[in-house]
Amino acid sequence: MRPTAAAVRPLTTRYTPRHFNGQGVRLSARPRALPPHTRGILTLKDHVYFAKCTAEGSGRKGGLVKSFGDQPVEFKMDMPKVAGGKGEGLNPEQLFGMGYASCFLGSLQLMAARAGKKELGEKAKVHTKVFLGHPENPDTEGFGLRVEICVEGIDDDNIIAAAHNFCAYSRALTEGCEVTVLKV
Rank of each mutant, 00 (worst) to 15 (best):
98 M>Y: 04
173 L>M: 14
114 R>K: 06
154 I>G: 04
17 P>L: 00
153 G>W: 02
9 R>T: 15
169 Y>D: 06
14 R>C: 14
136 E>C: 13
64 L>K: 12
140 T>W: 11
56 E>W: 01
37 H>N: 13
79 M>E: 13
176 G>A: 09
93 E>M: 01
162 A>K: 09
36 P>V: 06
41 I>T: 12
61 K>S: 11
111 M>C: 05
137 N>L: 08
18 R>Q: 11
126 V>C: 04
86 K>S: 14
57 G>E: 02
20 F>W: 14
80 P>F: 06
9 R>K: 12
6 A>V: 07
99 G>L: 09
154 I>E: 03
138 P>A: 04
131 F>R: 14
21 N>C: 07
34 L>R: 08
31 P>E: 08
141 E>V: 10
60 R>S: 00
102 S>K: 11
155 D>Q: 12
147 V>P: 03
99 G>T: 02
80 P>N: 01
149 I>Y: 08
35 P>N: 04
101 A>G: 09
56 E>D: 08
27 L>C: 08
154 I>C: 02
28 S>I: 08
136 E>S: 15
107 S>N: 00
50 F>S: 14
66 K>Y: 01
92 P>I: 00
98 M>V: 12
7 A>L: 06
144 G>S: 13
72 P>I: 03
14 R>K: 15
155 D>T: 10
66 K>T: 14
54 T>Y: 05
26 R>C: 08
51 A>F: 08
5 A>C: 01
9 R>G: 15
100 Y>Q: 09
75 F>L: 10
77 M>E: 06
94 Q>R: 07
176 G>F: 03
111 M>A: 06
12 T>E: 12
118 K>D: 01
61 K>H: 12
179 V>Y: 07
168 A>H: 07
19 H>P: 02
11 L>P: 12
5 A>V: 12
5 A>Q: 11
59 G>Y: 02
91 N>H: 06
68 F>M: 07
90 L>S: 13
7 A>T: 08
173 L>V: 09
52 K>M: 10
86 K>I: 10
